[in-house]
Design a protein around this nucleic acid. Structure first.
Length: 442
RNA sequence: GUGGAUGUAGCUCAGCUGGUUAGAGCGCCAGAUUGUGGUUCUGGAAGUCGGGGGUUCAAGUCCCCUCAUCCACCCCA
């Protein structure tokens, strides 16, 4: 008795009904946006063979993989995101019609230190477009991003946009020391820290961690220092790169994606080119985006993604371009809670049927069934209790209507319906109950 | 992982320089005449004072260790 202390693992959370109700509403809104863009649901397992996930994310991320041997001695990992499992699916099923447009809603796990808006288990909602190299697909991801936040009532945000080709072009222009393989990824991850860590720290890290000399670092910051409107930044970057350099292709893609996104109705002032956005994950190859809430500076990105044209080919060996974006549902939810955009609900029940005596139980059950058939979430009070207690039960749960069935009502063949917010009561013939309650509740 | 802060009732916290049976607000439960919630009034339940060790006649209060949480750095959704 009580010998086991109830507790929960660090970084993991219970979502009690009061939160879950609002969270489910949020998920439905997100799902609605996804489906309006023609994305279809996909689900994959929480566990994958380790070799499916390893080598896709980069060192920083891989340290955060939950990895263990299962009962059969298989080397497995909890998925770190939804993108790599999707890549596996796209590679594994040869009969998928392309472009393949799945959306996924599911938990992912990262064994990192939890903090504000950071958990070890959290829900991601991804949309991906597999099999199309079109930059229109990139722009669609941004439009989904914009629509999702708008649908949730969030208005003050910025989608930061960059292109990996710009960054790799930058590194190539610096010579082989900077642009070769793993070192290039390391440099990008360092650059990605710029908004959080600041220029000084990044300069130091580029020298100590990435082994760059001061003139190379100077050149990088010459590029990162390009400022101004999106147009001005594109123009500045064009001047920086020669026309034949790899970076120029990225600049042209950026310009294209911007135009397409505007065409899809993404307000232009919500999109900002930011050359320091690299994303911590290795698999990105083209567009990268991260979304920030301007009312919560320092909160971190609530939605992000990018193009990963080479990831799926790591499984199949042939070209398979893809682009996607991911909503950090839990983070977004806690951000919205901080901003007061979440209305908590205590229960989904809208009607409580209150039987006042044992004789009233049978008619109460029947009434409840008919109310449910009419589509109203209905509970029957389970114990014999005073009316006072039953009304209190309804009040505590925010239940809008109580159907009272007592001796008087039974004798008259009707029920008393009490509307809790108004405090009004009306007599309703039992036969009309579902229709009347439905119209009273709206 | 580094630095700082905090751990007292379900929640938010008070408890002065160590001194008898540890408090408040909110919440919860019950009652204010027999079938009417949310307001009010009355009453009630509930705490190994995070855990362990030490100093002392005496520790929630001082010291040490440990665990946990929060904030910053770091990293990301």
């Amino acid at each position: 008795m009580g010998a086991i202390e109830p507790r929960i693992l660090k970084g993991f959370r219970d979502c009690l009904p009061q939160q879950m109700i609002a969270r489910q509403r949020m998920l439905r809104a997100i799902e609605g946006v996804f489906e309006r863009y023609g994305f279809s649901p996909l689900q994959t397992p929480a566990l994958e063979y380790s070799d499916i996930l390893l080598g896709k994310y980069g060192d920083d991320a891989e340290r955060m993989l939950y990895r263990f041997a299962d009962k059969g001695g298989r080397d497995v990992c909890l998925r770190y995101d939804l993108t790599v499992p999707l890549a596996r699916v796209a590679a594994q099923y040869g009969n998928l019609p392309m472009p393949f447009r799945p959306y996924q809603i599911g938990p992912v796990w990262r064994a990192e230190k939890p903090g504000r808006g950071r958990y070890r288990e959290f829900l991601q909602c991804d949309v991906d477009i597999v099999g199309s190299p079109s930059l229109l697909a990139d722009a669609e991801c941004m439009a989904v991003d914009n629509d999702v936040l708008s649908a949730l009532g969030v208005t003050n945000f910025t989608i930061k946009l960059n292109n990996r080709k710009v960054l790799t072009g930058l590194l190539e222009s610096l010579g082989p020391a900077a642009s070769s393989g793993e070192n290039a990824n390391g440099i990008l991850r360092t650059i990605d820290k710029l908004p959080a860590a600041g220029e000084k720290a990044v300069r130091r890290l580029l020298a100590t961690d990435n082994g760059l000399d001061q003139s190379t670092i100077g050149r990088i910051f010459e590029f990162l220092g390009i400022e101004g409107s999106n147009e001005q930044m594109l123009a500045g970057a064009r001047r920086f790169f020669g026309p034949s350099e790899a970076g120029a292709e990225g600049i042209s893609e950026l310009s294209d994606v911007l135009a397409r996104a505007a065409g899809l109705g993404v307000p232009e002032d919500r999109v900002r080119i930011d050359f320091s956005i690299a994303r911590g994950l290795d698999y990105y190859t083209g567009s990268v985006f991260e979304t920030f809430l301007l009312d919560l500076p320092g909160f971190g990105s609530v939605m992000s993604g990018g193009r990963y044209d080479d990831l799926i080919s790591m499984f199949v060996g042939r070209e398979m371009p893809a682009v996607g974006i991911s909503v950090g549902v839990d983070r977004l939810f806690s951000a919205m809670a901080e901003l007061g955009l979440i209305k908590p609900s205590k229960s989904v029940t809208r009607v409580l049927v209150a039987p006042m005596s044992t004789e009233a139980v049978r008619p109460a059950l029947e009434s409840a069934s008919r109310m449910r058939a009419a589509g109203r979430a209905t509970e029957v009070y389970l114990e014999q209790a005073k009316l006072k207690k039953q009304l209190k039960y309804a009040d505590q749960r925010g239940i809008e209507a109580v159907v009272i069935l007592g001796a008087d009502e039974l004798a008259a063949g009707e029920a008393t319906v009490r509307l809790m917010t108004e405090g009004e009561q009306i007599q309703v013939p039992l036969g009309d109950l579902p229709a009347r309650v439905a119209s009273l509740l709206g």
